Computed example of a mutant assay.
Amino acid sequence: MKLIKAYVRYRKMEEVYDALKHEGFYSMTFVECEGTGRYSDHEKEHISYKYPFAEAYRVIKLEILAADEHVIPVIQLIRKNARTGYNGDGVIVVSPVDSAYKVRTDEEGILAI
Rank of each mutant, 00 (worst) to 15 (best):
K12C: 04
H70R: 11
R79S: 04
A66T: 10
C33Y: 03
E69F: 08
I92Y: 00
R58L: 12
K80C: 03
P73M: 15
F30S: 10
H22V: 10
A66R: 05
A66H: 07
S48G: 11
E34P: 02
V93I: 12
V8Y: 00
L77Q: 06
D18S: 12
C33W: 00
G85K: 13
P73I: 15
D18I: 08
V71C: 03
H42T: 11
H22E: 15
R58A: 10
I72W: 05
P73H: 14
V59G: 00
H42R: 11
K44D: 07
V94L: 01
I47Y: 05
I60W: 02
E23R: 15
V31A: 10
Y49I: 05
R9T: 06
S48R: 09
T29H: 13
I64D: 04
Y26V: 14
I4K: 02
T29K: 14
E34G: 05
I75K: 14
V91C: 01
Y7P: 00
E45M: 10
N81V: 03
P52Q: 02
Y86I: 12
Y17A: 04
S95G: 08
D68Q: 03
A67C: 04
Q76V: 07
D18T: 09
A6N: 04
V16C: 09
R11V: 07
E43H: 12
P96D: 08
K12H: 05
F25I: 12
A54S: 04
C33Q: 08
E15G: 02
E32C: 03
I92C: 01
L3Q: 14
V94E: 00
T84Q: 12
R9E: 05
E14M: 10
A19L: 08
R9K: 10
A56K: 07
V8D: 00
S27K: 15
T29Y: 15
S40R: 15
S27C: 13
G24V: 14
I92H: 02
N87I: 13
K44R: 15
G24H: 15
H22T: 13
R9L: 04
M28K: 10
A66W: 09
N87D: 13
D18N: 14
R38E: 06
S27L: 14
Y17N: 03
F30R: 12
F25R: 09
K80F: 02
I60H: 00
Y7W: 09
Y17D: 04
E69G: 07
E23C: 13
A19C: 05
A54C: 04
Y86P: 12
Y86G: 12
E32T: 08
V16E: 11
P52K: 04
E34T: 09
E45Q: 11
R38W: 06
R11W: 09
L77K: 03
T84C: 13
M28Q: 09
V74N: 08
G35E: 09
I72Y: 07
Y39T: 10
